[in-house]
Structures are given as C-alpha cells and as structure tokens.
Computed example of a mutant assay.
Amino acid sequence: MSSTAGLILTCKAAVAWEAGKPLIIQDVEVAPPKTMEVRIKIKYTSLCRTDLYFWESKGQTPLFPRIFGHEAAGVVESLGEGVSDLEVGDHVLPVFTGECGDCRHCRSDVSNMCDLLRINSVRGVMLADGQSRFSINGEPVNHFLGTSTFSEYTVVHSGCVAKINPLAPLDKVCILSCGVSTGLGATLNVAKPERGSSVAVFGLGAVGLAAAEGARIAGASRIIGVDRSSKRFEEAKKFGVTDFVNTSEHDRPIQEVIAEMTNGGVDRSVECTGNIDNMISAFECVHDVCQ
C-alpha cells in the first residue's frame, strides 16, 4: 500500500477558470479514490486539440473551473475499494473512453461505447458519488472527460485505466491514450485496408499520421495524404504516405481529384479533421464498385 493512500494530496495543476482565459498553475487538493477509482501520479501529459476546443467553449456548455487534459502517462499511487486488476506502482495510461467490461457494448466485438464510461463532456464529477475529487480552498473543481491530466495527481475510474509495460518510456507513450490509438485503431480495426489497397487520409495532424501508419502496417500500397499545408507531406512520408493532395491548390471537389488519381477512387478513406466538408469528400472519394 502507498504511504499516501487515503490522504488528501496537495499538488500543482493547470486550472481553467474561464473560457479562453489563460490556465493558472496553482495548488489543488486531490482527494483519495473511492469505490472503483484509481489515483494516478501523472508523469507526462500532452496537449490535444480537444482540450483547446473545450477550453475555448465555443458551442459547448461551459463548465468552469476545470482541469483539462486526457493524453497522459503515469503511475498508480493508490486504489479505491473494489479495484482488483491494478496495483500501486503500475505504469498506466488514463483513457477517456473507458470500459466497464460488463455492459452490452463492452461485450460486443463491434463497439466500445460503454454504457457506463462512454465519453461525457459535460460531466465534471465522478460516478461513484457525483462529486469532484479536486478542490481549491474547499471549493470543487470540475473534472474533464474523466481524466483531467493537467494535474500532478488525478483520480479516474478504474475502467478508464490501461496498464502498460513498465519499460515503455512514459514521455513517448503518453500520446497513445488518445491521438495514436484513435488514428491507428480507426484504420486497423474499422477501415481494415487489405494488403496492396489504396487509402486516403484526410488531415495529417497526430491522428492522421497515426491513421497513415495503420494503413502502412496493414500493407496498403498507396496512401494519399490530404491536407491544406504542404509542409506536412515530408513528415507524413515517415508514416507511409506516398502521395499528397493540398486542398487549397484545387478549385474543384477533392474527391474528384482523388478519383482521377486512382482510376475511380480509393479502397478506403479515413477522415481525421472533424470537418463536415472533409467528411463528405472522404466518403465520396471511395470507389463505389469492386475493382
């Protein structure tokens, strides 16, 4: 058992008090984990555009004060009652799309949208008791996506924790908890391109590069990166991208450009920007008959 188990810990955290206003690094009290919860000492955390999106709070329900962050790696500091699959000292990744292991989605081979732990961007409290584990001078601070990794310590549901090999460098694998697994998983587990096939990847940010890597691993022979910045092509080549289309250089629908490049369209496409126009292009650039 950890020497700090059961104690309220004081640590530094980056707290967002208002939408779009600078985060403030300050002392935060972190309560011990309750039933089916884990307290993690965060070693490394990265910044995802999703954090920025909810920090700006444009089009979402504002929920402040709040501790953002969801791409991270750390070490288990203490366990709440009922947690049996983790131990103090385990190296872990917090995961915002958790799995209870018992619901219909967790038992399904085609879905992981857990009934209990699926993404809920407007919940700022823990499920066990409807309260926050963060506070400043006795006043609660909201959680974010059940992870809140912009804090030296955080408390998450045990179903939102992935145990990893202790030899894995935490400063590198922290992005596996979001960007890499999202893009790589979408390609390998959903798109499932066949060896020798063609794949279009829309958006060459972290998620898009991971999607391209997934296509490369699957053995795709042609991987077309689509982005509005030509500077990204050189880096994308390292992840298997063979061709590049700059959307800003064409005055006709990009799906037509890709169809022309590929004699009717690609075998698979992966959209990694969240832009509706790109979604349409990604759908329409795939050929409609077997080739």
Rank of each mutant, 00 (worst) to 15 (best):
D277Y: 07
V226S: 10
F54V: 02
L188C: 10
Y153E: 03
V141E: 04
R66T: 08
A212H: 11
C106R: 11
N189S: 11
G59N: 12
E29R: 09
F134G: 01
L23N: 01
S177H: 02
I217M: 15
E284G: 06
K43Q: 11
L188G: 08
A162E: 03
I164Y: 06
R133H: 03
N275K: 13
S230G: 10
N165M: 04
G159N: 09
G183L: 07
M1H: 14
D90Q: 08
R195L: 09
G98A: 12
F239C: 08
G98Y: 09
D115E: 12
G69M: 01
N142T: 01
L204P: 06
K163D: 08
E71D: 04
S221Y: 03
L47I: 14
V207W: 08
M36K: 15
T45R: 00
C48L: 05
A5H: 12
L52C: 04
P33R: 14
V173D: 05
V180P: 06
V201E: 10
V38H: 04
S3V: 12
S181K: 07
R49V: 10
E249L: 14
P62F: 01
R268K: 13
S221D: 05
R39Y: 03
A212V: 11
S158G: 11
L127E: 08
W55T: 02
K163Y: 09
S132R: 00
R39E: 01
I40S: 07
R39V: 00
L63K: 11
I280E: 13
T147C: 10
A236R: 08
F144S: 00
R39C: 02
G80Q: 08
G205E: 10
L9C: 03
E271A: 13
V83D: 13
R195S: 09
L167C: 09
Q131R: 12
R66C: 12
S84H: 10
E71Y: 00
D85E: 11
R216I: 05
T147D: 03
P62D: 03
G183F: 09
W55E: 01
I42V: 14
V207F: 05
Y153P: 01
I42F: 02
F239P: 06
Q291T: 03
N112E: 13
D243T: 06
A220I: 04
M261N: 12
G205M: 09
D267V: 02
R268S: 00
H250L: 07
T4K: 15
N142D: 04
A211R: 09
L23P: 01
K231R: 08
V88F: 05
S132D: 00
G130H: 07
P22G: 02
K43A: 11
K34S: 12
I276G: 06
L52V: 08
R252A: 05
L79P: 13
V180L: 14
G6P: 13
E260R: 07
Q131N: 12
K34Y: 07
N275M: 14
V270C: 11
L184P: 04
E260Y: 07
S3D: 14
C290A: 14
A31K: 15
F202E: 05
C48M: 06
Y53E: 12
F239Q: 08
S84K: 14
F68P: 00
M279H: 00
I276P: 13
V28Q: 07
V241Y: 08
V141D: 04
R107K: 15
L209Y: 09
T187P: 03
L7N: 14
F244K: 04
A200C: 04
